[in-house]
Amino acid sequence: MGGSGGDGHFDERGEASGGLPVEIAFLSRHGVAPSGLALVAQRAGRNGTEPARELLALGLINEDGFYRAFAAELDLPFHAGDFDLVSGGDYGAILRGGIAPVTGDATPSLRFILAPEGPALRRMLEAGPRQRNDIAVVTPRRFGEALRRANAATLAIRAANLDTAGLARDSARTGTSRGQRITAAIAAAGTATGGVFAPLETFFSVALLLGPVFLGLILLRLAAAIERPAPDLWRQQRWRVDDSRLPVYTVAVPLYREEAVLRQMLRALSALDYPALGSKLTR
């Protein structure tokens, strides 16, 4: 395979000449200790994770520093300002590829924004664009935010299953299935045959089959009409409810690299007015 610039060379397994994975080996030329990179490679191999993700999780470098080094490795500008991506396309494929065109409104000199992860990061380091002023690098977090912002309406429709695929999957507009049609045809043929050769017996057989169904529907309607609505004890006897009888709820709030909002989140959790709500902070 081709080189990544500088003195790095890659073998067929996607490893640099020093035995480190391609996606982190270049960092040794940008201030990260090779011993730390070797530890990351060992942990990634043992855990079956992406080396770059393992590197960020260990805190040897933050996301901003990683992609600044990535931009320097490819001799591309790192873009810290505002940008807007062009809407449309396959959202998942664009996110996995880590490259998308920009609108040019806020950044007229740029054509594409680059923020690859995983296999896309490896491919870019091995044979990606270099020394281009119309392609800039950003962090995946900002790339994902811009991509969701550009496709907000489409993603909302898809999340609500109101797109074409969702409507076809969740509605009966596509018609009956093959098995349903076969079952209905067999039932109709059997009823017609019985009606010709034994009409009286067929009539009573159908009545016996459908009778319990109609009886169940009648009883259900009667039960719904007779049953009293459940009393709203909270409104009627709000201050008589013993706190010990309230259900206990567990609120799980996973955190990952969200130190900036930690204090705000703790204040919000502490403000919850519920007697049976306990708190436990784990790492």
Rank of each mutant, 00 (worst) to 15 (best):
M1L: 11
G2Y: 07
F10D: 09
R13C: 04
G14P: 07
S17N: 12
G19P: 10
V22F: 02
E23T: 14
S28V: 09
R29A: 13
H30K: 02
A33W: 04
S35N: 13
A38K: 09
R43V: 14
N47G: 01
T49P: 05
A52M: 13
A52L: 02
E54S: 13
L56T: 12
L56R: 15
L56I: 09
A57Y: 12
N62C: 08
N62F: 02
E63C: 01
F70A: 03
A72C: 04
E73G: 01
P77T: 05
F78A: 06
A80D: 14
D84P: 00
L85Y: 02
A93R: 15
R96I: 00
A100H: 02
S109M: 05
L110I: 10
L114K: 04
A115C: 01
G118M: 04
G118K: 12
A120D: 10
L121M: 15
R122S: 14
G128T: 04
A136D: 09
T139R: 04
E145R: 10
R149N: 03
A150V: 00
L155C: 04
R158Q: 13
N161K: 13
R169N: 02
S171G: 09
R173I: 06
G179I: 03
G194K: 10
F203C: 01
L209A: 14
L210M: 14
L210V: 14
G211D: 08
L217A: 10
I218K: 11
I218T: 08
L219F: 09
R221M: 04
A223E: 11
I226G: 00
I226D: 07
P229R: 14
A230F: 08
P231L: 13
V241I: 15
D242A: 15
R245I: 09
R245Q: 13
P247R: 05
A252E: 08
L255A: 12
V261Y: 10
Q264N: 12
Q264E: 14
A268V: 09
A271R: 12
Y274P: 05
R283Q: 10
